[in-house]
């Protein structure tokens, strides 16, 4: 049952991800990307990580993609006004992303050798366990990540200011 669900969600995720790339209209791309995030959130639920699934939806589908949609609507991108890119640019983009794919496949090729520390714990992804782990074992990386976010926020405000003295 769960295996079928996994294949169904994977199929949806890959199909929507392809639609993001293939659709001509940027608004359609953004909406397909939202659907992709839903399929990935479904994978998190299958792994019993409900907290991660909910946060994934809130942050990506609910906030970041709304901003993307916002910006694209303001720019009002159309097929006619979009400048045609040169063939060299397209070729170099294809080569660069192909290399990235190669790196990803190369690094994940041996991933199946890694075994989980807790082989089977159904409550591993629940919010209590996640909080305990984050605030005990990974406290320093967690705080460092927050400083990183703060830095990004301050930087964005500085860039947004009209005249810096």
């Amino acid at each position: 049952m769960i295996t079928y669900l996994f294949y169904f969600l994977s199929f949806l995720a890959i199909m929507f991800a392809l639609m993001v790339v293939l659709s001509k209209n940027p608004i359609h791309s953004v909406l397909y990307l939202v659907l992709t995030f839903f399929a990935i959130a479904g994978h998190y639920v299958l792994l019993n990580a409900q907290f991660l699934a909910a946060v994934h939806i809130i942050v990506y589908a609910g906030a970041i993609m709304v901003l993307f949609l916002f910006v694209i609507m303001l720019l009002n991108l159309n097929k006619e006004t979009e400048p045609h890119k040169s063939i060299w640019l397209k070729a170099s983009a294809a080569v660069a992303s192909g290399l990235l794919l190669l790196v990803l496949v190369g690094s994940l090729r041996n991933a199946e050798l890694i075994t989980a520390a807790n082989p089977y714990n159904p409550s591993i992804g629940l919010i209590e366990n996640l909080g305990q782990t984050l605030f005990h074992e990974f406290l320093l990386p967690f705080e460092v990540a927050s400083i990183l976010l703060l830095g990004a926020m301050v930087g964005a405000v500085m860039l947004g200011k009209k005249n810096i003295k």
Binding site: Q50, F51, V55, I57, A61, G62, L69, M73, L126
Partner: peptide, 25 residues
């Protein structure tokens, strides 16, 4: 009764804006 009920609620509320945005655009 979801054990992440508040987050579910919050997620659905944050999706509510799509209807208005898509309709407006």
């Amino acid at each position: 009764d979801l054990n992440i009920g508040i987050l579910y609620l919050f997620g659905v509320i944050s999706l509510g804006v799509y209807g208005i945005m898509i309709g407006g655009w």
